[in-house]
Each structure stands twice: as C-alpha cells, then as structure tokens.
Design a protein around this nucleic acid. Structure first.
Length: 483
RNA sequence: GGCCCCUUCGUCUAAUCGGUUAGGACACCAGCCUUUCAAGCUGGCAGCAGGGGUUCGAAUCCCCUAGGGGUCACCA
C-alpha cells in the first residue's frame, strides 16, 4: 500500500449520473494505478434532500460498473460529533464565531448587492458581538450559525494536479457558514474536515468544486491540517453545452443501463471523456486503463457526451462478449418486451442463447438486440412494407413458398446445413436464383428484409414455426394483398 | 455582475523542450466484400475561436477580445 488515499464522496440526492460516475472511475483508476486506497463516503449532511434509497442506488450503480472501493462507506450523518468538535476548537481559538443574523435579515443586503450589480459578501455583523448582544439574541430564541473568520487580505492558492496553481483573493471570500443553525455542518466544512481526518492524499472531484476549494483550504489551515493535493476533473456537458439535466435523455448510470449498454462499454466510454490512453487506443479494458492511467494527462476541457460513440463501443463489447454472458444480460430486455407474447421460449436457455448468438453482431445495445429479435418471440409480426413490394408482389412467389413448404416435409429437423442444401436443390431445379427464394422466405419468417443468415433462422425457429409462417405468408399473399 | 476555469474536425481526442502535409476514433459520404442485414476493409469530408505580440520559426509562450462553463446558499 502506498501513501495514496483517495475518496469518492457523492451526496445521496439523486441517481449516479455520468459525471459523478466518471469521477468515481478516475478515483478508482488513480487508486489502483498508485496501489493506494479508495474510500467511499456518503456526504449526506443535507437532511432535506438526502434519501436512503439513493444511497442504495448509488452503490448499486457503482457495483454494476465494476468499481469497488477499499474502505467505507462512511456516512457523514454518523460523524456529526466530529464536525461540531472541530467547530468548537475553531470557536475557542477565535478562528470562528457565532452569528445570529437570520436568513431574512441577510436577504435585504443580498438584494441590494444584486440591484447594484455587486457581489454580495457577508458584512461580518457578528464578528465582534458583545456579551449583552449575544444575551439579547439568545433571549429572542435565535439559533446561531457558526462562521469561519476569513482573513481580509492575502491569497489562497489551490495546487491542482490538472490545472496547476489557481489563486484566489481572500478579499473575495466572506465569512461563510461552517455549522448551520440546526447544528449540522455545511458541505464546505464537513467535506474538508473528513478529507483531512481520513488522511485523504488526493482529492479528485469535478470542476464545479474548484471555486469552493479556497474556502475548504482556509478551513483546513485554521484547523492546522496537513493539506491534501487536488485534481479537478473537467465537467461532462450535455450535447447543447449546458449542464446535464433530465431533459437531455439518459444521463444517469441507471438510465444507460436500462437503455441496454454494457457496464464495460460505459466505463470504457467514460474513461475516454477527458483522458486518452495514448497510442490512439479507443477500446480498452479496466485493467488496461489502470496500467496506463496518469492524472496529469487528464484534460482541462469540459467534454460533451455523445451517445453515438458509446453505441459503437457498446457494439464492440457485445460482439466480444461470451454468448452465455450476453444472453444473461439480454434476458431482462427480452422478458420486458415479450413477456406478454406467451411464446414459451423465455425459459428455454438454449433457445435464448441461439437467438442472441444469431443477432448479437447486428445490435449496438441490448435493447436494440431485443427489438431486432422480435420474430423469435412473437408470431403476429407485420411484414416490412418495402419487403412486401420487393418480394411478395413478384409473380410466382406463392408457388415458390408453396414448393418450399411441401419440400420441408421431407426433413425431420431443420439445420442450417440441410436447409441450405434444400434451397440450392430447389433453385436449381426451378431455375431461379437463390436470392429469389431467400428474399420471400426471409420476409415470411421474420417480416424483415435483413437479419441473420436465413438458414440459421430456420434452424433456430424449427420446422413447425417455419411451416406455420410459410402458411401465414401464403395466405397473406393470396388473400390480404391488394396488388 | 465579481471571482475562477476552459477554447484543436459536428463529437471524443493526439501532437516529448516551439520546427508535423495538424494524427487517431465516432458520426457522415463513397467504394469493396457479401445469398440479405450487420460486421470488416479501403478511401473521402472536416479542425488549431479571433486579434496582436515574442521568435528565424507558434496549435504550442505572452497580452487582449469573444465565446462556453463553474462558483458566489443555514445545497452538495
């Protein structure tokens, strides 16, 4: 074990979105690359918004992605005494003070600053309260907050592994709240207290935290902590360059999962957002990433996520996946889509495997796989319009299908080999091209014009289904079609 | 608005200390392959935000402008 200790510290206020997931990934990669420790911490100091169900979802998503941790999860809500003790220390050392200003009282100042187009800073009303003032406030029943005393001058420098040194003027910062009036710590306080108390060596997090870092640094300094290193990774933006939100479609890991993306593919894709393994590599496994990962090579630029590349990556993984494994992954999608078809095939593992194996290289997601395999699980599909025009409406098609149907009777079971032989024989004696027979057959059996090899389809479907569908097509052509 | 960060093809990115016909991938287009559809292969389209410097030489260093993002909560 090295000295490297990093943490992933989500707050359980929603599902794990792709930005947070990538932050987790980078923490994971760095920890593994440096043979360090990854700590999982739940930053749940916001009682209003934190939900236990989200904790479970967060963990579930991380597990699904294959990103494990070495320590934790720790819950900030269970460490409240730590924060109040540290705040007490600050109070006794005069580095922090009680503030009795109410939200309403402060609002007017904020409003004024806003109207004058100036930035609002807490004026420090309660910096030097006299005892009798405190008594008066207490008598009113006011519950104070605790504010950190910020130096009026000087600069605070964030040493960032990705962005180098970033400096802030202390005069732009105000005495911010570290303990709320309900006794709970604010994020800027709890976060840095834990990071330091837990001996986190590197804080790797999203860029949205960069502006808050000087506040946390000031806390750490006041508390006398040894300062950790920082690495602020760029944000992931929606396709319109705006911040990710619900209206941008799938943004949470859970949503990508239900869209039918494989965890390996999502991880691969996320790694490529803001980092390049080098040597023009695009497809890369988690363990290969670990070997190649380097925090200093992480980009500074925000990335826009683009699902078309994710889909391409996903297609690659699907093709590489072992059939058993892919069948297992695809099953929930198949079930969801065809549960009501009463086809009886959903419990037939061998059948599912054959289907998956036949269609897997034609789909980019599991969801798409389940869609293009519909004819394996339902009988009353429609015929593709263009296919009907091209195949069924041609003179002689019915006879071709009728011949095929009766010739099929001579075969005990259908295999891709014996059906192909049959087709070749039929076409030769009937003096038609193979394609002339295959097109209508495909449409009759699947309703589509494309898909897996037709002989494979016949083998999987089996003699009864094939015969049944040929009959259905013959009936359709003879009775349902307006020529 | 103050402060902070960022800016290479449509998108993700590469380009050791400044010297490259600015490379790769996705997407798109075309061709090949093919008993369909995919996959695969080959080729094509497409970029250094703009302007000033510094330098023999700048995507790379400096400044300005523009644009994008973040943050300024008793949210995290």
């Amino acid at each position: 074990m090295s000295e490297v200790k990093v943490r992933f510290a989500p707050s359980p206020t929603g599902e794990l979105h792709i930005g947070g997931a990538r932050t987790a990934l980078f923490n994971y990669l760095y920890a593994k690359a440096e043979e360090g420790t990854l700590v999982m911490r739940i930053d749940d100091t916001d009682l209003e918004r934190s939900r236990e169900e989200y904790v479970d979802k967060l963990i579930e998503s991380l597990h699904w992605l294959g990103l494990g941790w070495d320590e934790g999860p720790y819950f900030q809500s269970k460490r409240l005494d730590v924060y109040s003790n540290e705040a007490e220390r600050l109070l006794s050392e005069k580095k922090a003070y009680y503030c009795y200003c109410s939200v309403d009282e402060l609002a007017s100042g904020r409003e004024r600053a806003r109207n004058e187009n100036k930035q609002y800073l807490y004026p420090g009303n309660c910096r030097d309260l006299r005892d009798n003032q405190v008594e008066a406030f207490e008598a009113e029943g006011r519950k104070p907050v605790i504010r950190l005393l910020i130096p009026d001058t000087g600069t605070t420098v964030v040493n960032d592994l990705i962005r180098d040194k970033v400096s802030f003027n202390n005069s732009d910062l105000d005495d911010f709240i570290i303990i709320k009036s309900n006794g709970l710590p604010t994020y800027n306080f709890a976060s840095i207290v834990d990071d330091c108390k837990m001996n986190i060596s590197h804080i790797i997090r999203g860029e949205e935290h960069l502006s808050n870092t000087p506040r946390q640094l000031l806390c750490a300094k006041a508390l006398g902590y040894k300062l950790p290193a920082f690495a602020h990774v760029p944000m992931i933006l929606a396709p319109d360059r705006s911040k990710l939100s619900k209206r941008h479609g799938a943004t949470s890991v859970e949503e990508f999962r239900s869209e039918g993306y494989l965890p390996e593919a999502l991880v691969n894709y996320m790694a490529l957002l803001g980092w390049a393994p080098g040597e023009d590599r695009e497809l890369i496994t988690l363990s290969e990433m670990i070997a190649l990962f380097n925090l200093g090579k992480v980009n500074k630029t925000a990335a826009i996520y683009d699902t078309s590349k994710l889909s391409w990556i996903n297609g690659n993984y699907m093709r590489e996946y072992d059939t058993d494994k892919l069948a297992k992954a695809a099953l929930p999608f198949l079930k969801e889509k065809y549960a009501t078809e009463n086809h009886g095939k959903m419990k037939d593992e061998e059948y599912i495997k054959k289907v998956v194996s036949a269609v897997k290289e034609r789909a980019k997601t599991l969801k798409e796989l389940s869609e293009i395999a519909d004819y394996f699980f339902k009988d009353n599909f429609d015929y593709d319009e263009k296919g009907v025009k091209k195949n069924f409406k041609k003179e002689g098609t019915v006879d071709l299908l009728k011949t095929l149907k009766s010739e099929l009777k001579g075969l005990d079971i259908l295999t891709s080999a014996n059906t192909e032989e049959l087709f070749v024989r039929l076409c030769e004696s009937g003096k038609v091209s193979l394609g002339r027979l295959m097109g209508p057959t495909r449409l009759a059996l699947t309703g589509k014009t494309g898909g897996p090899a037709i002989f494979d389809i016949m083998e999987i479907l089996g003699k009864d289904k094939v015969t049944e569908r040929l009959e259905r097509a013959i009936y359709y052509i003879e009775n349902m079609m307006d020529s």
